[in-house]
Design a binder for these strands. Structure first.
Lengths: 221, 221
DNA sequence: GACATATAGGTATAATATTATTTATTACTA
DNA sequence: TAGTAATAAATAATATTATACCTATATGTC
């Protein structure tokens, strides 16, 4: 019996970055690249690239390197970008609209099927050809449009309740921008984008750098 | 000679989440909490909480636990949230406006001093009392307003050039939403928020969950 | 108020997970 | 054919997380 080795989270979180760099190479007409060249561009070790990719099979060839286009599409398959993901956005404020406006998503199989909001002033408006609806229709819309993903760009107070409704209606993935940790069943995945936490990390880093500098200056004096 | 132990990145990235939970406890009037109680709420191990906090000193007391308010402010200090950070936003599109509108930032010492854009149609508009300016004034504005942080919510094509200008003008921290890796000197920190990569991770996870399920179903049959 | 007991943080140690390094082998390029 | 460069696998080095133990403090009981 072959034991399927679990692929580490660290590897997964690096894949999109490989994908991005390969996409750029592709745009620039680069046909092939060695792990070594790529490692210099990306500022990681060549061995890490090779080991990461080898988790999914040998995409390269000895003496040649990696075929950029092939590797690009293969990583795309691994990430599931070759499939279509039907997406709705809950919360049609600036953040929701920013996501809706990001055209590239559609290139990668993410199709925005609808936008929802509770604010009556927004309902009826059209963003990028998508009408903003009230949340009353949510469940029906999800079923009718075979939606499996939802971006949650609403305040944290409303998020858990809406998340429950989404899950009950059959949503399998939540892209959560609200500042709460959602509780969902095992077969639903949540990817958190906690902007305020990101900003705090930045704050920490800038402060610790400055403190360090101060200490060094003091030592000199 | 005391060797300053470097605090691991993993610990830092967990701090904002502690901070969030403590803030909520504080709002709910909870005065004290043990690592064990907190661990249940946060779904992490109690020992991880204790070890994480101990990197910065002993904030708790045996037999008592942690004083919520004290711990909250101490973590705030560690994260540098007690200090004032003057911030500008480059790119006044939906994403930039979303950030500007997020009121809570100001509660935590992040003061938005200005917004900039290259789009002439946006220049002159006022968002949350902040006028959108053209990027010509960028350098002067940074100096005049003692700005140390910049959020970059512009397309990837413009980002490296603007980042260079920011660095030259004295910016020390960049909150980068553009889909590029910025190259900056050692004394400047960059925190990336690559939304498309986040979405791809979500896509991977949903797909791998589904594939796994399919395999299990097949095994049963 | 004193004592016993449970609580709970701190800290050292062990276990895991993740990265990096190294080596041998093999396929392809030029 | 020589050189390049990936694969594969083993090992070493780090980083991260979990476990276990020690001890101070709080709390309840007499």
């Amino acid at each position: 019996m072959v034991m399927e080795r679990e692929i580490s989270k660290a590897v997964i979180s690096r894949l999109p970055r490989y994908y991005r760099y390969l996409g750029e190479l592709l745009e620039n007409g680069v046909e092939r690249i060695s792990s070594n060249e790529l490692s210099i561009k990306m500022k990681v070790t060549a061995s890490q690239i090779r080991q990461d990719l080898n988790n999914f099979g040998g995409f390269g060839q000895q003496g040649y390197g990696y075929n950029v286009k092939y590797l690009y599409t293969e990583i795309g398959k691994i990430l599931g970008i070759d499939r279509q993901h039907n997406l709705i956005i809950i919360g049609a404020g600036n953040l929701g609209q920013a996501i809706a406006n990001y055209a590239n998503f559609e290139k990668r199989g993410f199709v925005i099927k609808g936008m929802f909001d509770i604010n009556p002033r927004l309902i009826g408006l059209v963003v990028r050809g998508i009408e903003i609806r009230g949340v009353e229709d949510l469940e029906q819309f999800i079923v009718d449009n075979d939606v499996q993903m939802a971006a949650l760009t609403i305040p944290k107070t409303k998020a858990p309740e809406i998340a429950d409704r989404l899950v009950k209606a059959g949503i399998k993935a939540i892209w959560n921008f609200a500042h709460v940790d959602l509780v969902v069943p095992d077969d639903v995945v949540v990817e958190n984008v906690h902007l305020s936490e990101s900003l705090m990390r930045l704050s920490y880093r800038i402060c610790s750098l400055q403190d360090q500098k101060k200490k060094e200056d003091k030592k000199k004096a």
